[in-house]
């Protein structure tokens, strides 16, 4: 079914087409993850799992992560496979649409950033900068289910 989700971040309520993003990612998950041979590093999960973020910081972390994927990840994930590129475009445009909705919450001060989310996001960027751009972007894209699992 449609599988839209209304995600509640305190006062911020955002409708997200999670099922469409999930379907797009599932279609290319094996292909993308196979391009990431680095097992000893995770962009999103280490050293602290997203699941350990306390709830008051969830909105800010989600907002940061949407910006991160839109600004730093998708554009560096172009492949030689037209089908994969189309699915990446589908996910990227869905993220752009949701980034905008979250941005409105952020502007209305419904998405406050605490110290934990700031620290957590710094760690994610540090993990990202440990690799060259393409490897970091591809690894981040391959970890999309980690983000989706956590958001849901």
């Amino acid at each position: 079914t449609a599988g839209n989700k209304i995600l509640h971040f305190g006062a911020c309520r955002v409708s997200m087409s999670m099922a469409e993003i999930r379907a797009g990612f599932t279609a290319i998950k094996a292909n993308i993850q196979a391009r990431d041979s680095i097992r000893t590093l995770s962009i999103l999960s280490y050293p602290h799992s997203l699941h350990k973020v306390n709830s008051s910081d969830r909105c800010c972390i989600t907002h940061h992560l949407f910006n991160f994927y839109v600004d730093k990840v998708f554009k560096h994930c172009r492949t030689e496979d037209s089908y994969v590129n189309r699915k990446i475009s589908s996910i990227a445009n869905s993220f752009l649409s949701m980034k905008r909705k979250l941005g409105q919450c952020h502007e209305q001060n419904q998405c406050v950033c605490g110290q934990e989310s700031t620290e957590k996001f710094k760690q994610i960027l540090a993990n990202y900068e440990e690799l060259n751009v393409t490897s970091a972007a591809m690894k981040s894209l391959g970890e999309l289910d980690i983000l989706l699992d956590w958001m849901e």
Binding site: S17, E20, V70, F74, K75, N85, R86, N93
Partner: peptide, 29 residues
């Protein structure tokens, strides 16, 4: 964000028909 790049639709590459089902690719609002 991606230098105004364009993405080909493989099912509608070098076709003789004058229509193309783009539903699968128009998957965001």
């Amino acid at each position: 964000y991606a230098n105004e790049s364009w993405i080909p639709i493989s099912e509608c590459s070098l076709i003789t028909a004058t229509l193309c089902n783009i539903t699968e690719d128009i998957s965001a609002t």
